[in-house]
Amino acid sequence: MESGDESAMEKQRVHVRPATLHDSSPATLHLLPCEVLANRFAPVGRFFTPAIRQGADGLHVSFRGRSLRGEEVSVPPGLTGYVMVTEKREGLIGKQDFRGSENNGEEAQEPLERGFDQFIGATGSFSCFTVWGLETVPGPEAKVWGALTWPTLAAAVCGPPAVHSRGDSCCRFTHRCPRTENQRASS
């Protein structure tokens, strides 16, 4: 992209636009069990969403002639989901902090934002998303469930000492939605 060399990347900071974290509008996310090698507009609301059916055994949809089965997944408690997009360089003009131009490693005076830094902002937020499996519900064995237990474990493995930890993001383990718990119990 814009900054050509590797070393710039190691130095770079990607600043999160704080306002976007509470201003972002709700986003609807579906995790599909297939590769789509494109990052672009897709008429999801026209073709995909209207085809979703709520059956007794979960969600059904047809996508490109294949039958998908889905379930709702809640973001673990204490966490919020965000869709984030890095800003284009052009977007920075006027926001550049020119004090940063003499960046010679003097950390005491060095501003947090330097001219060569990038910015990222949340474009959407979510508290749940739909996980889809090909022909079968992803179910409790789905890898994504395991990944969602990571925040709980991370607190113990590599988290900061308990007295210093803020919030309660990592102390609970109850984020599985009821449906999945039932499936687990019956299996």
Binding site: N39, R40, P151
Partner: peptide, 22 residues
Amino acid sequence: HSWFINESVQSGGLLHFATPMD
């Protein structure tokens, strides 16, 4: 895996976790 995010498709289906670290 891939994402549908609102009216768009995003390849890869990556999910990033930020957790506090000592």
